[in-house]
Design a protein around this nucleic acid. Structure first.
Length: 271
DNA sequence: ATCGCCTCCTGCGCGC
DNA sequence: TGCGCGCAGGAGGCGA
């Protein structure tokens, strides 16, 4: 379940293998992902040099001379760099072949991931143009989140998971950030105070930055690696800890479903 | 505009 | 021990 820190780590891991390399083709073994993989992908990308590898939200942008490959890892996707002649394993759906003899291989058992081809300005793509700010950017600050939240009745947890509000806060980090900030996930976003948002913004930034740091240190090389650093490297205070003792006060952690998603909180520490 | 619910898919955990 | 059932999960899309 790649969250933003894992996507960021993945980007950094694959970038050195891709930058300034020429694509020689693509193999699509399974085109039924979250959205159909575009037909004729190989033709579109062949011969093009990779100019940049970037991340926006949880999307990975592989920028070519003419156009951009837009990747999303869904919840079970992973990327690796491997020699093109390495036999694909189960769920290895797509290879992007490089002139180095290696390929970028997408594995995604649950197929919630996606690959789009964007011929024009990638940021104007429907999936990207309405996204909120990056959580680690300066645009994401107390004023922004506080103003955005006024009159919103949506639960604060669902509010911070809304990609139009802010990107990259997945289910795990939403619970963890709210615990750090001492806010109950069920509170209406519009009723959370400015002071609480101050704590929450900091908590979101801290928790994501810490995860990226731990990901960055564990990952030496994406060749043959699983590329799965991230949240499970750091201590989780509430996520997946139903009925276990709160690390702060010892009270059993509560579990409830919000928006068809598991939520966890301490009934004492979070108000 | 806002919100809740549905959907895609498979591995895994749980219960018997 | 082995089997089968049902759930989890990112996020767009749609209906209310």
């Amino acid at each position: 379940m790649p969250e933003l820190p894992e996507v960021e780590t993945t980007c950094r891991g694959i970038e050195p293998h891709l930058l300034n390399r020429r694509l020689t083709g693509a193999i699509v073994r399974q085109s039924r992902l979250r959205w159909p993989v575009p037909r004729g992908l190989s033709k579109k990308i062949s011969g093009q040099t990779i100019h940049a590898v970037e991340r926006r939200a949880k999307y990975i942008l592989i920028k070519l001379e003419q156009g951009t490959i837009l990747l999303h890892l869904g919840m079970s996707g992973s990327l690796r760099i491997t020699p093109t002649d390495t036999p694909p394993e189960k769920h290895d759906h797509i290879d992007l072949q490089l002139d180095s003899g290696q390929c970028l291989r997408l594995r995604d058992p649950r197929r919630f991931g996606s690959l789009h081809w964007v011929s024009g300005d990638a940021m104007q793509h429907a999936l990207l143009k309405n996204l909120g700010p990056e959580p680690l950017s300066d645009q994401f600050d107390i004023d922004y989140l506080f103003k955005k939240s006024r009159k919103r009745k949506l639960a604060i947890k669902l509010f911070i998971m809304d990609s139009k509000v802010i990107v990259g806060v997945g289910n795990i980090y939403a619970s963890e950030a709210l615990f750090r900030a001492g806010i109950r996930p069920t509170r209406a976003a519009g009723r959370v105070t400015r002071n609480e948002y101050e704590n929450l913004v900091q908590a979101i930034k801290d928790v994501l930055a810490a995860a990226i740091r731990s990901g960055g240190t564990t990952l030496q090389d994406f060749t043959n690696s699983e590329g799965k650093p991230g949240y499970f490297q750091q201590e989780l205070h509430v996520y997946s800890r139903a009925d276990e003792a709160c690390h702060t006060c010892g009270t059993p952690i509560k579990h409830r479903v919000m928006g068809q998603r598991a939520s966890y909180y301490c009934p004492i520490c979070q108000h």
